[in-house]
């Protein structure tokens, strides 16, 4: 039996997906190894806003080049 789906697929994580979407719009970006940046160590929210989630999952960071933003961190709720 044949179908159009490939037998193999490349598994990408969220930060790689986000890095690709940044590169598509012309922003220089580079995926960082998870848990290697200082921003992943501390609190992710100031907790001043009522919509702060109780629990989050860190998906790592993407470093930007030539931008006012130093780094992008990907976070999942729960």
């Amino acid at each position: 039996m044949h179908n159009s789906e490939s037998d193999t697929f490349s598994q990408t994580n969220k930060r790689e997906e986000f890095c690709d979407s940044l590169e598509k719009i012309g922003v220089g970006a580079e995926v960082k190894q998870i848990d290697t940046d200082e921003v992943e160590k501390g609190d992710y929210y100031s907790k001043h806003f009522t919509n702060t989630p109780a629990m989050v999952t860190n998906h790592g960071c993407v470093k930007l080049r030539g931008s006012n933003i130093d780094i992008v961190q990907i976070i999942q709720k729960g």
Partner: peptide, 25 residues
């Protein structure tokens, strides 16, 4: 419970360890 299908990208400007409060809120 567990991870939900909800994602956020935080665009971070590093402060080099300096702590700021309400002025940047």
């Amino acid at each position: 419970w567990g991870a939900q299908d909800r994602f956020q990208a935080h665009f971070i400007v590093k402060t080099g360890g300096q702590i700021f409060d309400a002025e940047f809120l």
